[in-house]
Amino acid sequence: MSNPMHKPSLTEDQYAPMLSPWRAKAKITMIFFVIIMFLLFSSWRTGVDLAELTRGFGNMTQITDKLFPMNMSILGPAVGRLFETIHMAIIASTFSTLVVIPVSLLAANNITTNWFVYNITRFIMNVLRTIPDVVLAVIFVGLFGIGVFGGIVALFVFSLGILAKLISETVESADMQPVEAMRASGANTIQAIAYGIVPQVLPQFTSFSLYVFEINIRASVVIGLVGAGGIGQLLMNQFSFNNYGAVMTIIAIIFVVVVIIEYISGKIREAII
């Protein structure tokens, strides 16, 4: 309510209000300052400055000289190894989608009411997800020797971490009312999950599995670099022999295949959801 006796003082209303209060301005300036300082520090620390940048871009023109002409003789072996890469991704994705079913139930707090089991599963999956695919591959290749097996295990572990998070979150967001109804009608836990939860999460489950297959295709290329089989291994060989023409051919093949598979998988996922 306004007071009729109130007279506006000079400090109010007389000046045009500022677009943003000084506090917000100071904050933004501070953030900006920190970003720039950190950038300068990082470039100093990594030895990248403007001079390097321009020199670098000068060098970039050499890239074409080195990488072209593409060496087409590598095409035959490359396609064979490419299939190996795809097979690795298929096998690893299949096993991780199977294993993730119990794991994601253990990591969903609406299914697993045991505090300890729930948290320990979550913790393990969270740690798994921080390890880059290549590091996993280095470890499993070290354990199982050079070749596809170590690669498949690495991909399996890598995608299990991602899938477990995505699917346990989907399970947690499922509507629990049907489960209550089924329990009330005498269904046991397995039946209640199969009838109450599974139909709700199935579309996302399928979609996430395809998504993980896409990720695994890229990852299986990458882990080949550390000796885990497939086209990546071939790429690393050619790279270490400085066969840049062959490197370029292999990269071109990888590019085409990744684009095609992601396109198909994306279309299927659109159709499902």
Binding site: M60, Q62, I63, V221, I251, F255, E262
Partner: peptide, 28 residues
């Protein structure tokens, strides 16, 4: 989407070829 199809480490290989084995290649 063309750019997205390259895994970072493959890009890194390209840039190591182009500018030599330095952190700069990694940044690119």
């Amino acid at each position: 989407s063309g750019v997205r199809a390259f895994p970072e480490i493959i890009l890194a290989i390209l840039f190591v070829v182009a500018v030599g084995p330095t952190p700069f290649a990694g940044i690119l």
